[in-house]
Design a binder for these strands. Structure first.
Lengths: 230, 230
DNA sequence: CAGTGTGAACCTTTTCACAGCA
DNA sequence: TGCTGTGAAAAGGTTCACACTG
């Protein structure tokens, strides 16, 4: 293949493959089959092969993929050969957790700054970074060439923070606040909502309970089947 | 419609609609058009109508949807008319953040227990709940009829904790550990990986940078277009 | 001959566009 | 008239199955 613009679904899985590949490499593997990689990433092998074929033909028929080379290719495709300075806005519980999360640094994301508006938090050192005032955002972004912002504020502040980030030159935002934020064309937003994930689980859980109920009573089960999310 | 088993994609958006609807209700709205709800949820109106049609015909042509009634229907469909006791395993930074997150309680999720293996953490009170030993998991699950477990441990412990949860009778797991966990048939798992979200953003950010680069040099741009994630 | 790479079939999701109802 | 509800079309994603190759 080797085309511009990889399918969105594939992009979403590349980091998964990358993590699995790095683990394999650390375990000493030099070569890997699509089947093995699939298992480690929690998908099926056809998907792995199709996904990887979008990056190019990096496998060897009858053998598999060279682990180190594939890691390099996936990193390059994802843009992880460079380092990404990020800014976290909102140093509450979640902001704290993210600031201390070692997984970011391991993957090339450096926390350039933490910002908040609470005067009690400013000056505090969290995860090795001193908390600054939100007003310093523009300066920090310019100085460190920050392209990615993370919003960990309450929902009520999310839109304003997003606007400030965009004004400061940030073009990619990861939003943990339980709110929809509006941004101009050209700015990417991804959101993670912890409560939403639980609600989705609750739906399937409830259906499982209903199914068990029906089974117990010996009613027709056909139309309640397939209750688990794939 | 009103069929058993709503499409997965729709289930994923219902909590989004619910949040928007609750906000609308709090703001005093009694009726809402698909267009308005769509905007508040960050999707388009056709999607809203199709999604809601899976629950039944709860709208009024020419008018819209009754906010209070629709909230009730969405809640019922998601299984949020009942309360869900949950258990959080791993009281590190993220576990702390989740234990203190008010959004859970607001949506009917009650933290029945926090468990960890670190003796220094056991007995500590976090977000109003005392941390207990992982060994107490089965007892806690039985006693509180817990159906949902949340894993906030390091990746290395995730699989073991998942197995213990399943053994204790938990059938739905929300996994924050950066690891793929294997569970038996019938157990649902959803995962949230903070670092993966950033990597996906990095991909699109990198592509935007590449596009800007090409533009600056006046090269053909066509095959690099459509760089933003939808 | 084991395992990749990929057309083709299949399934899911999104979008369109408009009939039909309050 | 204004908006829902929904078939039909289009797009996107997954799975199958096998030709091909190191």
């Amino acid at each position: 293949m080797r085309e511009r613009s990889i399918p969105e679904a594939t992009v979403g899985r590349l980091p998964l493959y990358l993590r699995a590949l790095v683990e394999m490499a650390e375990a000493g593997a030099t070569t890997i089959r699509s089947e093995t990689l699939a298992e480690a990433a929690g998908v099926n092998s056809a998907k792995v092969r199709k996904d990887l074929s979008h990056l190019g033909s990096y496998g060897t028929r009858g053998v598999g993929y060279d682990v180190a080379y594939l890691i390099h290719q996936v990193r390059r495709e994802l843009g992880l050969t460079q380092h990404w300075p990020i800014v976290i806005a909102g140093v509450g519980n979640l902001g704290h957790a993210l600031a201390n999360y070692r997984g970011f640094a391991e993957r090339g994301f450096r926390i350039a700054a933490l910002v908040d508006v609470d005067p009690r938090k400013i000056g505090e050192v969290v995860g090795g970074t001193t908390v600054r005032h939100l007003d310093d955002l523009a300066a920090v972004v310019k100085q460190n060439d920050v392209a990615i912002g993370v919003i960990c504020t309450p929902a009520s502040a999310a839109q304003e923070v997003a606007e400030r980030m965009v004004a400061a030159g940030i073009r990619s935002i990861l939003n943990f606040a339980p709110a929809v934020i509006a941004v101009p064309e050209g700015v990417s937003v991804r959101k993670v909502d912890l409560a939403i994930e639980l609600q989705i689980l609750a739906y399937y859980e409830q259906r499982k309970a209903a199914l068990a109920d029906v089974k117990r009573r010996g009613k027709a089960v056909a139309d309640l089947a397939e209750v688990s999310p794939p």
